[in-house]
Amino acid sequence: MRTDIASTLHWQQHEPALDAGRAPVLLVHGFASSTALNWEATGWVRDLTAAGRRVLTVDLLGHGESSAPLETDVYAPSRLRAAVLEVLALAGIRVREAGNPATGVDLVGYSLGSRLAWELAAERPDLINRAVLGGMSAEDPLADFDLDAADRFLADASAIAHASTASLMTLMQLAPGANAPALLRLVAAIKAERFEPGASVPARPLLFVTGDRDVLATGTTQLAALAGGSEVLWLPARTHTNAVSSRAFKQAAIEFLGR
């Protein structure tokens, strides 16, 4: 299905075998990832539908099967969130009603997707029931990305001096199907619209899940403190790359969203 929102966004609904009568779960993938990589190959869609949850997935603009325009403004995080909300409207998500667990929507985000989920939960407490925020950073790992060096690298393979820029660039080169020129526009848009966790704090129940060897997702403790009463799960020996497929992560998310 493609939304009219620039008729460019690829989103899907995955029906459970046996509907548990709970609100759907929207999955929001990370930077340079996709629904297929972040949620399907890792078993998330299967485990959630097996738990009786209807699952919504969306490929963010510039990712997966969505289109990847080469302009910067369309990638502004505020516009990515607006697109996600439009998907929720198209999927028939209703505003939360007290005592009706089938209304509203639950969110699971990873990395950049967690940033968007945090902001969505803060902006739309009438819509979002609960959110699981995986591999989330208090500061944008993309904010100090050296765009000029990346552009030069793409043009003539010049070496990138800045370490985290170089490693993100490697990630973009390695990730199957990643569209590096489009992703650099997204980086530019994120630099212009930085994450400010304190600006609006979700009041909905949150579960933070982070690998204890994740060097990109810094600030989990700080974010959890900011959003009072939220829960934290540390995944032993997991990194930013391999935390997402962890069975403990999925089981904790399913349990948390089932409450």
Binding site: S33, L37, A41, T42, G43, R46, L171, L174, A175, P176, T241, N242, V244, S245, S246, R247
Partner: peptide, 29 residues
């Protein structure tokens, strides 16, 4: 190998995930 999802002696069904592995770019079941 990140984690075995089955152990020796388990009956495994077709398409049941049995291992979680990581490559340089992603982790999958």
């Amino acid at each position: 190998v990140l984690e075995w999802l089955v152990k020796v002696g388990d009956q495994v069904e077709r398409n049941q995930p049995f291992v979680e592995v990581e490559t340089t770019k992603s982790s999958v079941e």
